[in-house]
């Protein structure tokens, strides 16, 4: 190796690494929103590691909770027993109702379909650069997850949708608070539609394309999905209006608080059935 290169070996390594990453940046430009090969590969390699770490920690936590820390177990058991009783009664009533409405075969098919309509998943990670943009869940293509499937929280409130990269056992969820998230919504009380755009800076969102002349939408009104975008089924709770302003432009400036609670996002459900079958 020439002496010139030997003397500057370290600087050349740095320059090489920076150059490689700049090339990596430029490679993504024609792909737009689609995940690049490098991103898919890195996700496929790293997401299982993160999943493994979370599983290990959960295992340790389970041992602690199951065998050592047994405070309030009795009260919890009583509460679960009551809840189970209530749900069983509700289930029986629903089954009876179905039997009356349809013939037995159609009702059985409906119930079977209902079981396949969603996949439960644990949140194993959040976006490393901006927590309001995306999360990673521990279910992937192996569990039937595909691009654009809607994701809701434990209360059925809209969280986001599945986007690339998706590996066999893990998937990325674009949150409704991401800038690139656009969801067709309307007021629960007043049938005014608009597009809900996320704002990852504040963790909130904006309802866009509502004409300035419209006076019906007011603060504290809940918003639900319209289903017009063919991604999210209609009727999912998406957010609540926190302020309505008019700034002289054609459209109103409406700030939205997302329906889901970011601090309580440990389990989510991915709606795997097509639009119209998840209601």
């Amino acid at each position: 190796m020439p002496r010139f290169l030997k003397e500057r070996k370290n600087a050349l390594v740095l320059a090489g690494l920076m150059f490689a990453q700049t090339i990596l940046l430029s490679l993504q430009i024609p792909l737009g929103e689609e995940a690049s090969f490098f991103e898919r590969t890195a996700f496929a390699v790293l997401a299982p590691i993160q999943n493994g770490i979370r599983s290990l920690l959960r295992g340790g936590g389970d041992i602690w909770n199951r065998y050592v820390y047994l405070r309030r177990v009795e009260a919890q058991n009583r509460s679960y027993r009551d809840e189970l009783f209530r749900l069983r009664q509700e289930n029986t009533l629903l089954r009876n109702g179905l039997d009356r409405l349809e013939n037995r075969a159609a009702a059985a098919a409906f119930l079977r379909g209902l079981r396949r309509a969603f996949v439960l998943a644990d949140v194993i990670g959040i976006d490393a650069a901006n927590p309001y943009k995306s999360i990673i869940i521990d279910r992937g293509s192996r569990h039937g997850l595909r691009n654009q499937m809607p994701v809701v929280d434990a209360q059925g409130r809209l969280v986001g949708r599945i986007i690339a990269p998706i590996s066999a056992g893990e998937a990325t969820v674009q949150l409704v608070t991401d800038t690139l998230s656009a969801i067709g919504v309307r007021g629960e009380e007043h049938p005014v539609s608009g597009i809900l755009i996320g704002d990852p800076v504040t963790g909130r969102g904006w309802l866009t394309y509502v004409p300035a002349s419209d006076e019906s939408l007011v603060e504290n009104e809940a918003l639900t999905t319209t289903g017009f975008d063919r991604v999210f089924p209609p009727g999912l709770r998406a957010g609540t209006i926190i302020s309505v302003q008019t700034d002289g432009s054609l459209f109103k400036k409406i700030a939205i608080r997302p329906a889901f609670d970011f601090r309580d996002l440990s389990i989510v459900a991915v709606l795997t059935g097509p639009v119209g079958e998840n209601e």
Binding site: L25, L46, A47, D127, N130, I136, I163, T172
Partner: peptide, 13 residues
């Protein structure tokens, strides 16, 4: 960047 929805390769820079 693998755990983020941003541009891949940005954090490394």
């Amino acid at each position: 960047d693998a755990f983020s929805l941003g541009v891949f390769g940005l954090a490394g820079l």
